[in-house]
Design a protein around this nucleic acid. Structure first.
Length: 987
RNA sequence: GCCGGUGUGGCGAAAUGGCAGACGCACGGGACUUAAAAUCCCGGGACCAUAAAAAGUCGUGCGGGUUCGAGUCCCGCCACCGGCACCA
């Protein structure tokens, strides 16, 4: 760890942050805004006063996922994404765009409420304090956010519009014919629906926001219900508490109506493959068929009921040897025979009382009972038994399946356990393979009746043929199912948006717009009531209206506010609309005048959205859904909000070495320890595992790097080289004690070094371990930049003055002078080449989001420039423009010194035009070409850049080393790739 | 189990099918210094060889393949990370 300070970042950084703030340097301008003529943006673009959209330069909207302001403050993962976006925002400003780069707070949420329950402190107070701390930390990093657009989801001026959007959802239905949401007034009622009551029920059942009485995920510890997406392995995503199924009256949002569009529109998005796959998996489209199975009638002449199943493998219908209904299926009671009644009731009871957690734990062992009923397989008229089992889910498909144990893993398990028949209807392509449990595509077999034969057809063709047959006989139809469920939108919490809904005589209605925002009541006790009602029910004067109506006491989930915040930024202080039309069109459409400098024109939507993978399904799916509804209803002009999205990789803690010991105390080599996992212990968290051979439990202990050395492909103890240690980095967590606070790094290295290190670690989207030592490298680089410009004599004087003067006096910086090597001298060809190589590489790397290599190119330039006896000022100025996006504070300080020395007025660095590459300067007179023989390097020859292939060949063959290698061989082939390589194939 | 991603020096990493290891960390040597820190310069994949070098051989998780040439493309494995998980 370097102890001597490289340069006075502690004075420079606050100085420039204050100036940027005072000048409103990073204000983004909306169409119609009066831009002050003195503002650097106005000067750069020759604007002043009110400016219409078509006179503004093209927009560039670069968005961070706004944080939840937790009590713990920022961790190093947040600024990773923020730094990347800030670099690009600054870069785009220098490229001439009108850049929108905002920040805000996703501030509703459970922790503040739980803290309130514990301490009695109002969540508002906690939230404000946390926001203040987050804002201080974020601002200390010198990000170029337009703070005039800051949003806070808990601000009534914000959630007024969250509530307004809910009212839009409430007032809309999904028209399957137009495949879009429409005002509820366009709803078409079925014929014969005449009574007002029936019409009302029908209408309510079609709304995009509707009330459901379905079983929900109830978390007793949290005292609230959770969305499916918030339940992981039967436990709450927040806190890891058990979740049970329980029927409750809840608000739901009809996201399933958009399943197809949410799926299809992924194709047009510039997102990573894996992120799209996650969304596709979550939506979970399955193509298949519904098939109708008639039951064998037990009651004489009464028409037998029909059970409809969903299957993705209708081609295996001949192999269906039994059926299974979910225990909750509506026909279970009516089909159960008296002999089986007791067993069925017992099983239903058993299934109903199981929590999701128990269900997951028991998932491996199949269970179920026979109902006593039989159905007829429509293809061969065979009687097959009907069972119930909890491996069939009530909420997917039709809640019933045809079981094909020959070709479905779960059905096979079940059939084996209960001795049900297993028949083959698919031949695997490999004749030696076992057909039992073969679930992939093969060839149909044993699949014929008097009317149809699938035999010898490939699976795909068999499927088509049987579907057509089923449809022709009205025994089934082609259909599609989705895993996606409607979005459970109610929470029994205090710290969230109240629903703009009142209940009158048991019927709900939306509040008029004039009643928004609906503020939550002030409470002192934030727990649910003793009757189990949500905390809002405690405020009786708030819930009970004078006319006898009652307010809805649920609140919206945390995702509500984050579903649309990117739209509020566009027009954050608009009191009359969630977002003005002009602003929306400019920023989300392809707004602005064409760019007259080089650079791409504006694209629709958010140009770049950066954030963590933890939001891959929840936030991003919900946001897309709301956006599409707003689009359908004519409130926004694009069908998707985020056209390009990048996930930053997690930053892990420092590398740790773990030595394992068996319970007997002897050390165990790490590669013999299996099932390594984390376990809580007295002093935090430790690794434990099981010894491969003996089965003993092995306990990990952290060991110091000093005790370790590298051998072969692993690390071993120095003291005992047969003992391997485990080496890995862990996710930062409080319990592990490996959290790095940005504040500590900032105090020691400054914001510029911190920003640089976060980007230099590796590619943005990769998982990377933190290394504080690594910060030294970029910090030293900034020191070299400083010494490239600064006279050390004057800096010594400054240091002396700084120790005696009152600390933190930025005026002292004026004593620091440029070094005499920096001159208004003309640059040599070699110097220009160094600069332009840097321009080329940095520009290309920024366009490709390769920040790590962009920084290394800046280092290459500085390493070279340090050797120049005279440093031409013009070259250094261009270099500072390249440096500014990455390390803005030091760049501004040096820019001000460099431009002051000319006596000329200089443009503001943040808006100075990005250097233009002159490719002619990179052209070489000579080139070095490697010469290979049979792919092995033998020599490097130097030839004129203009040399022909023949000349290069001749030069290669003239090489002594090549000649020596070719001795005794005959040349079979010669490959000359101009400017690249020569390869001689010889034998 | 299914889907996706990633495997390159002691470490973080770089390389439109064309000289593997740019740039940095850590390390070793040197200069400066009374000394240290800081700074500046030099070194560096492994093996073999040697007083030192040159030359040579091997080398991008493993095994095959395509190609004049493969870290990069194709086929088959393995490991790690992430997501989903009785979704019929």
């Amino acid at each position: 760890m370097s102890s001597r300070r490289q340069y006075p970042f502690d004075l420079i950084e606050p100085k420039w942050q204050q100036r940027w703030e005072a000048q409103q340097l990073f204000r983004a301008w909306n169409p119609g805004d009066a831009i002050p003529a003195a503002h650097p943006f106005a000067q750069r673009h020759g604007l002043s006063g009110p400016t219409p959209a078509d006179k503004l330069p093209p927009k560039y909207y670069i968005l961070d996922m706004f944080p939840y302001p937790s009590g713990a403050g920022l961790h190093v993962g947040h600024p990773e994404g923020y730094t990347a976006t800030d670099i690009l925002a600054r870069y785009r400003r220098t490229r001439g765009y009108n850049v929108l780069h905002p920040m805000g707070w996703d501030a509703f949420g459970l922790p503040a409420e739980q803290y309130a329950i514990k301490t009695g402190q109002h969540p508002r107070a906690t939230t404000e304090a946390n926001i203040a701390n987050f804002k201080r930390q974020i601002q200390s990093l010198g990000f170029s956010y337009d703070w005039s657009r800051e949003v806070d989801t808990t601000d009534p001026g914000y959630f007024r519009w969250t509530q307004w959007i809910f009212v839009q959802l409430y007032g809309a239905w999904f028209n399957p014919r137009t495949n879009k949401a429409e005002p509820i007034s366009t709803l078409v009622y079925p014929e014969g629906l005449t009574s007002a009551h029936e019409r009302r029920s029908y209408c309510d059942s079609k709304r995009m926001a509707y009330v459901s009485e379905a079983p929900v995920n109830w978390c007793p510890e949290l005292g609230t219900v959770l969305a499916n997406e918030e339940v992981i392995d039967g436990k709450s995503e927040v806190g890891g508490f058990p979740v049970v199924r329980r029927p409750m009256r809840q608000w739901m949002l009809r996201i399933t109506a958009y399943a197809e569009r949410l799926l299809n529109d992924l194709d047009g998005l510039d997102w990573t493959h894996s992120l799209k796959e996650m969304q596709r998996n979550w939506i979970g489209r399955s193509d298949g068929a519904e098939v109708r199975f008639a039951l064998v009638s037990t009651k004489g002449s009464e028409p037998a009921p029909v059970i409809t199943v969903f299957t993705t493998r209708p081609d295996t219908l001949f192999g269906a040897t039994y059926m299974v209904l979910s225990p909750e299926h509506r026909l279970v009671d009516s089909i159960t025979t008296p002999q089986q009644r007791e067993a069925v009731d017992a099983y239903k009871n058993f299934a109903a009382t199981k929590s999701d957690l128990e269900r997951t734990e028991l998932a491996r062992e199949k269970s179920g009972v026979f109902t006593g009923a039989f159905a007829i397989n429509p293809v061969d008229q065979k009687r097959i038994p009907v069972w119930i089992a909890d491996y069939v889910l009530a909420t997917y498909g039709t809640g019933a399946i045809m079981a094909v144990p020959g070709h479905d893993t779960r059905d096979l398990e079940f059939a084996t356990k209960f001795n049900l028949p297993i028949v083959q209807v698919v031949r695997p392509p490999d004749p030696k393979a076992d057909w039992r449990g073969f679930v992939e595509a093969g060839t149909a077999t044993n699949s014929r009746n008097a009317e149809i034969s699938l035999d010898d057809l490939p699976t795909a063709d068999a499927r088509e043929k049987i579907i057509a047959w089923l449809e022709s006989k009205a025994l089934g139809r082609r259909t599609i199912n989705y895993k996606l469920r409607d979005w459970l939108f109610s929470r029994q919490r205090y710290w969230g948006e109240p629903f703009p809904i009142v209940w009158r005589s048991g019927q709900h209605e939306a509040l008029p717009d004039s009643d928004l925002p609906l503020q939550p009541p002030d409470l002192t006790d934030f727990k649910p009531t003793s009757a189990g009602d949500p905390p809002l029910a405690r405020a009786q004067e708030w819930t009970a209206l004078s006319d006898g109506a009652l307010r809805e006491t649920n609140t919206m989930p945390q995702w509500a506010g984050s579903c649309w915040y990117y739209l509020r930024y566009l027009d954050a202080r608009n009191p009359a609309a969630f977002c003005g039309r002009e602003a929306e069109k400019y920023w989300m459409g392809a707004g602005g005048a064409p760019l007259n400098v080089s650079g791409a024109p504006a694209k629709p939507g958010v140009d770049l959205y950066v954030g963590g993978t933890e939001h891959a399904v929840l936030h991003l799916l919900y946001s897309r859904f709301w956006h599409k509804v707003l689009f359908d209803l004519g409130h926004v002009s694009t069908s998707e909000p985020f056209f390009k999205l990048v996930n930053q990789g997690l930053i892990l803690g420092e590398l740790e070495f773990t030595l394992f010991s068996a319970e007997s105390g002897r050390h165990v080599t790490a590669n013999h320890v299996k099932n390594i996992s984390e376990e809580a212990s007295a002093d935090g968290v430790r690794l434990v595992g099981v010894h491969q051979a003996s089965g003993e439990k092995c306990i990990g202990r952290r060991v110091d790097e000093e005790e370790i050395e590298k051998t072969g492909d692993g690390f071993v103890l120095k003291s005992s080289k047969a003992i391997r240690v485990d080496a890995r980095s862990f996710k930062m967590s409080k319990s592990r004690g490996n959290v790095i606070s940005p504040d500590v790094i900032l105090a020691q290295y400054g914001a510029d070094a911190f920003r640089l290190y976060e980007m230099f670690m590796g590619p943005l989207e990769m998982v990377k371990p933190w290394s504080t030592k690594g910060v030294d490298g970029v910090y030293r680089f900034l020191g070299r930049v400083w010494r490239l410009f600064i006279d050390d004599q004057s800096e010594t004087e400054f240091e002396q003055a700084a120790t005696t003067a009152s600390a933190g006096d930025a005026a002292l910086l004026d004593r620091i002078r440029l070094k005499p090597d920096v001159q208004e001298a003309s640059a040599s060809r070699a110097q220009l080449k160094t600069l332009h190589a840097c321009i080329k590489n940095v520009t290309e790397d920024l366009d490709g989001l390769r920040f790590n290599t962009a920084i290394s190119e800046l280092m290459v330039f500085v390493n070279e420039a340090m050797t120049w006896p005279v440093k031409p000022a013009a070259i250094l100025r261009e270099f500072l423009i390249l440096l500014q996006p990455f390390a803005p504070h030091i760049a501004e300080e040096l820019w001000s010194k460099l431009t002051a020395s000319t006596g000329q007025p200089a443009p503001a660095l943040a808006y100075a035009p990005w250097p233009v590459l002159d490719p002619a300067l990179l052209v070489e007179d000579f080139m070095e070409m490697p010469v290979q023989v049979n792919g092995k390097l033998r020599d490097v020859i130097r030839v004129a850049a203009t040399a022909t292939s023949q000349e290069i060949e001749a030069a290669a063959l003239a090489s002594e080393k090549v000649k020596a290698d070719l001795a005794g061989k005959t040349i079979r082939k010669m490959i000359v790739v101009p400017k690249k390589i020569v390869n001689i194939a010889a034998g």
